[in-house]
């Protein structure tokens, strides 16, 4: 029979129960943010949210096309999940501000993902315009989540601008290439006073886990889940990966070393 002591927990147990993500004073039980883009069927969104545990999901605003079928994406998102309207389509700070205000007036709450893109080839965000829009919208009472090229100065400027987080891209949108910007994101995590949410380019659960292990506060995954063969299962996989990565971070995983270090004693039996 095992001694009672065997079950005594180590002194510093990561407190996963109270490990909520805090954005603009709002708590989220999941560190996985998701997006509604690219799902072949909108009906997959709710079960994906349930299985992944994600409590925040992006939506976009567009002019109606009288010739296309009218969708109301809001009907496919459970009320318990926070909406994160994005400003996609904006090429300037001014346009982003306008979209944000429309979204809020339309009843989408205070969260806004600022996305200002005028590089239509690689779809890389314009950090200058994003900082400008962040400042205006934060002053206007929004909880601002800005999507940016990983850059230390930008992260600092966003803090000064009143943003609620900084969302550096891992690699270009929709590429599924993972954390190509890892070294810079690592510095942002180390230096930023804002929560860091890695957005864009995360193509596999292992990428998400890698970001979380490194100390990212959350990740945002859309394409990888939505375009997988089974988005509900993929959502669950990402949910687990984010949790595993977070636990590993909280457990203070040992650093990599350049040389081998034995995990069993090397001496004391066949030779000295």
């Amino acid at each position: 029979m095992l001694e009672k002591d065997f079950f005594i927990k180590t002194e510093k147990q990561p407190d996963m129960e109270n490990d909520a993500l805090l954005l603009g004073g709002v708590k989220f039980s999941s560190r996985l943010l998701t997006g509604t883009g690219k799902f072949s069927s909108r009906k997959l969104i709710a079960p994906m949210l349930e299985k992944s545990g994600s409590k925040m999901i992006t939506i976009a605003l567009r002019r109606v096309d009288p010739d296309a079928e009218q969708e109301n994406i809001l009907n496919y998102i459970p009320g318990s999940v926070t909406l994160l309207p994005n400003t996609s389509g904006a090429r300037t700070a001014e346009e982003a501000v306008r979209i944000a205000r429309i979204a809020r007036e339309a009843g989408c709450g205070k969260f806004i993902k600022i996305e200002v893109i005028n590089d239509m080839h690689y779809l890389l965000p314009d950090n200058n315009e994003t900082v400008k829009a962040s400042e205006i919208l934060a002053k206007d009472g929004f909880i601002v989540l800005p999507y940016v090229m990983p850059d230390i100065m930008t992260a600092r400027q966003l803090y000064d601008a009143g943003a609620a987080a900084v969302m550096p891209l891992g690699s270009p949108i929709g590429t599924n290439r993972g954390l190509e910007m890892k070294p810079i994101i690592k510095i942002i995590i180390e230096k930023s006073k804002l929560p860091v949410i890695v957005d864009a380019g995360i193509g596999r659960p292992s990428h998400a886990a890698e970001a979380m292990e490194m100390g990212a506060d959350a990740v945002l995954v859309n394409t990888a889940i939505a375009t997988s063969k089974d988005p509900v299962l993929a959502g669950e996989a990402f949910g687990l990966a984010v949790k595993a990565g977070r636990m590993a971070y909280l457990a203070l995983m040992a650093e990599k070393k350049d040389y081998a270090a034995a995990s069993s004693p090397l001496t004391g039996f066949l030779r000295e």
Binding site: T58, I59, L61, R62, Q70, I73, L74, S88
Partner: peptide, 28 residues
């Protein structure tokens, strides 16, 4: 300026007005 749906019937439009009709769609 956003016009709430409850006011659509009483909100007059005139020559030269700029009107946007928008909706939320899928997007990341």
């Amino acid at each position: 300026k956003i016009i709430k749906q409850e006011n659509w019937e009483k909100t007059a439009i005139k020559h030269g007005d700029n009107i946007e009709l928008l909706s939320f769609v899928q997007g990341g």
